[in-house]
């Protein structure tokens, strides 16, 4: 190949990288501009959603925390998220360990059943659960919401943990056995410490998903609302700038969880 062709290719590649940069920048702008607008307006001094904002203030945050519906919504969301996380972490860990490490006839079906809700629209899950709870004559409450969230978040937990378990070298467990560890000691001293970071990371993913889940919650909620439902009911009545403050708080919460998760994933052993 002549040097001229090689040089041309290099120039094209350089130009290609330049175009790629512009494309990525536009994509990120498109994705995050609405969020940026939301955050900026949450600090606006005026009640008008008009740009540019005329002054900075924390009045909407003060208003939010003075509204009992919002604070109780935050508490309800936290309660649902934490209980969901605990249940999913327990059930999901056991299921993933059994299917990945001790596959049995029909373990593929188990995986399918666990993953199915991820493929279903939240709307369908919500309606199905509403009918189901109705048939059982259950009073809708945060408990029924939690059941919905468990079904919805389990697939994500299961997928993340299964990926970690697939990278787990079974020879490590054999080595522990060879050193004299019984099944319980082996799990306690080798398997559990090695997969714990992945369990924690997956549990944080569950917290983040549950924290802002709307569709399933909408159908299964009782008289106590979670934060997303509080926002929805307020935004439906009027465009109240305090919604921006709540939205910013939610983004901050999710970001914190993501940062935590990244730390745990970075610490997990490969």
């Amino acid at each position: 190949m002549s040097t001229a062709v090689i040089r041309l290719r290099r120039r094209l590649r350089r130009r290609g990288i330049g175009l790629l940069r512009v494309y990525v920048a536009l994509l990120l702008l498109f994705l995050f501009l609405p969020l940026a607008v939301l955050i900026v307006f949450s600090f606006s001094a005026s009640g008008q959603l008009r740009f540019p904002i005329t002054g900075l203030s924390l009045r909407w945050y003060r208003e939010v925390f003075a509204t009992s519906a919002v604070t109780s919504g935050i508490l309800a969301s936290l309660e649902v998220a934490v209980v969901t996380g605990a249940i999913v972490a327990t059930v999901g860990t056991l299921a993933a360990v059994v299917v990945q490490r001790y596959p049995f006839r029909g373990s593929g079906v188990v995986t399918g059943v666990i993953l199915a809700p991820a493929a279903l629209p939240g709307l369908v899950i919500g309606i199905a659960l509403l009918n189901f709870f109705g048939d059982l004559h259950l009073t809708l409450s945060l408990m029924t919401v939690t059941v919905g969230h468990v079904i919805y978040t389990l697939p994500y937990f299961y997928l993340v943990l299964s990926a970690r378990l697939r990278r787990f070298d079974p020879a490590l467990e054999e080595a522990a056995t060879d050193m004299g560890a019984g099944p319980v000691q082996r799990f306690r001293l080798v398997t559990a410490p090695l997969i714990a970071p992945a369990i924690v990371a997956s549990a944080f993913v569950v917290l983040a998903l549950s924290w802002d889940e709307f569709q399933i919650t909408f159908f299964t909620i009782g008289d106590q609302s979670t934060l997303p439902l509080v926002i929805w009911s307020r935004a439906r009545l009027s465009i109240d700038p305090s919604v921006n403050a709540i939205g910013t708080l939610m983004v901050a919460g999710s970001l914190l969880v993501v940062l935590f998760t990244r730390r745990f994933i970075a610490e997990s052993y490969t």
Binding site: D169, A171, L172, E174, A175, A176, T177, D178, M179, G180, A181, G182, R186, V190, P193, L194, Y269
Partner: peptide
């Protein structure tokens, strides 16, 4: 007798040191 109760030890081909 299961492996954990045998008075023998194995050095594996792959590295099987406990990474934690």
């Amino acid at each position: 007798r299961p492996a954990n109760k045998r008075p023998v030890n194995l050095v594996f081909q792959r590295v099987t040191l406990f990474p934690h």
